[in-house]
Nucleic acid binder design. Structure first.
Lengths: 196, 196, 196, 196
DNA sequence: AATGAATGAGAGTTCATTCAT
DNA sequence: GATGAATGAACTCTCATTCAT
């Protein structure tokens, strides 16, 4: 298979997000995705190795942009506290702006089999590294406690944000997600800050 | 179907945990569970409405005990800080002591369809209420900030613990989960504490 | 198995008629019949060899009475024409008086497998013989044409009555079946009568 | 599903007739039909909604041709008496020429559940209408009695033919069905004719 | 490159019958 | 005689993937 890309590649991924968000993971057959993308079933296999590959590519594609945007915004800030706030706000805001994507990443994609979930975790590493960088910078600058466990802290931050977003999706996105960024930020920052 | 219970009922649930942990959700056919439980396929249906019902009952059963044990331990404590520590330690300890159950609850059961996941969330409510009670007690006693958002704080605590456990399971339970209870407790407590 | 009979034997047969008429052949499980009869599933097998045996016995039992009643009424008559009318009227009347039985014999029992249908046909022979006797008497007495083919004529009579009843049952017994006895009688009699 | 038709569509229907005639209704699994038709199991579902749909389509298809052929032959005749004879002869002849089809329509298809039987009855309406047209023409022309009840007469004719054919099939088609057309015709015609 | 008809493996569930009590 | 818990064989339909056109 060629190195992907092309207009149809994007079409198919966007169709997949739409179809999965609407019909749920288990009701999103390849033929449905193909129909939504306006291509034949067989064409899918010119751009993706198999169905699994669509899902992983989808996550790579969307997550790549997701992280990139957060990175950009964060670089404009110097204070670690602000950087963390940006991270949380951007995390929430991006998912709030694309309900379909939020449904897919928080609920539907998690129904995939373990293999895919391990691969998705691989993709997530880029994001976790970004979180790590904030923590490390905070420790270096003495803003956070020097005895912070990097892994545990990273899991705290990611786990909290993820849980908040998942709850929001399961409540059918009925409230404004972004308003929860500040309280979460306060709790996390408070937790990580060295307070004598 | 009678109101369940009975020796076979337990047998089947335990077999389901074992089979799912070993073979994964999608490779755990009813016939496999029946074989492991030492009963005929049809017998399953004398105790459970369908396959989905096994999974939900499994979660109810195990989660009920899980929460009950934490409750008991917590009641023996008076300090809110200690109660939170007990909660986290018991959460980690119980899953560390039953790897199969941990695999099933953290990874496999989440692959089930949305309907089951909503039902599982219903069962989880009992646990979330327990978490709420700690937060509320902390606020009342002035240990935690009075401006804590109950929902967000609950999601912070649960999300963090869940993420920590899931990571541990995905790393094949290679390290000691219980050692992470203390750092998580410190971060959370720190985050929630009123510090002038 | 003993030679059947006994109160429970009747109970089970009546329960079978009721259950099959209400739920249809394919939704009439042995357990349902047992419940309606007020006995345990296993008890059924003390009175009947298997499920098939219930159906055949049911047909034997009900058909025996059915034919017997017609015979009695017919013997009170001397004219062949009247005897044929009695036959048709009694056929219709008895089924009209027991809708459940009509549903079972006309629709549901015919869904059984071929083996049962052959056995049912055996039971029917007694009735067909009765029809034959009327035809033969008519020929002897010179009322019917002497060149009547016995088999064909019997099939004509039975086929016509059966079709009329089946149509009535499929139209949910909405009209009076007995009113059709006279026109059918006239047609059949007319057809069989020697007319120079 | 496209609007059916196509070579495979016919193949599958013919295979179904063959398989059902040979193995009986309840022993005619989809896989058996597929094998006989020389297609994969899944292919069946490209042409039919489900197994039930095969049976109904089979009946529609065969019955459509069946009626059409009778119609054509009848139109070549002018006398009502001859038309009725044609009807009976063609009815018998067509089934005699296709034993498999006769077995399927007279015995096997009747074992299907009530839903299918009602649908089959719908298909039969076309044939019953054809019978009606003969009766009505006979009445108009004064050949038949003017006081004939259309419904009852139709049921007489159809019931008689059906019974004759069913008996022939149950006797394993051992005698010549066509020879019974004349006596049945004579009986029916005689029955319907106005005779002062 | 694009198509879409064809493939065929795979599993949850029912229910007639048995037999230990 | 009566019970009813336990058995286990049996079958339709879906859908990811292929490949001839």
């Amino acid at each position: 298979m060629g190195k992907k890309r092309g207009q149809k590649y994007e079409q198919i991924i966007d169709a997949a997000v739409k179809v999965i968000a609407k019909n749920g993971y288990h009701q999103s057959q390849v033929s449905k995705i193909a129909k939504e993308a306006g291509v034949a079933d067989g064409t899918i296999y010119l751009y993706f190795k198999n169905k699994e590959d669509i899902l992983i590519s989808l996550f790579e594609e969307k997550m790549g942009q997701f992280v990139e945007r957060i990175k950009e915004k964060m670089e404009a800030e110097t204070s670690v506290e602000k950087k963390l706030l940006i991270l949380i706000e951007m995390h929430f805001m991006q998912l709030e702006m694309d309900h379909d994507l939020a449904i897919v990443t928080q609920l539907e994609l998690r129904q995939s089999n373990i293999d895919i979930r391990y691969k998705i975790n691989e993709v997530l590493k880029g994001y976790l590294t970004l979180i790590d960088s904030v923590i490390e910078e905070g420790i270096e600058k003495g803003v956070f406690g020097s005895n912070l466990d990097l892994r545990v802290t990273r899991q705290l931050i990611f786990g909290a944000m993820d849980e908040v977003v998942t709850n929001w999706v399961m409540k059918e996105c009925k409230y404004e997600l972004i308003t929860l960024a500040e309280p979460i930020h306060r709790l996390l920052l408070n937790g990580m800050t060295e307070n004598t």
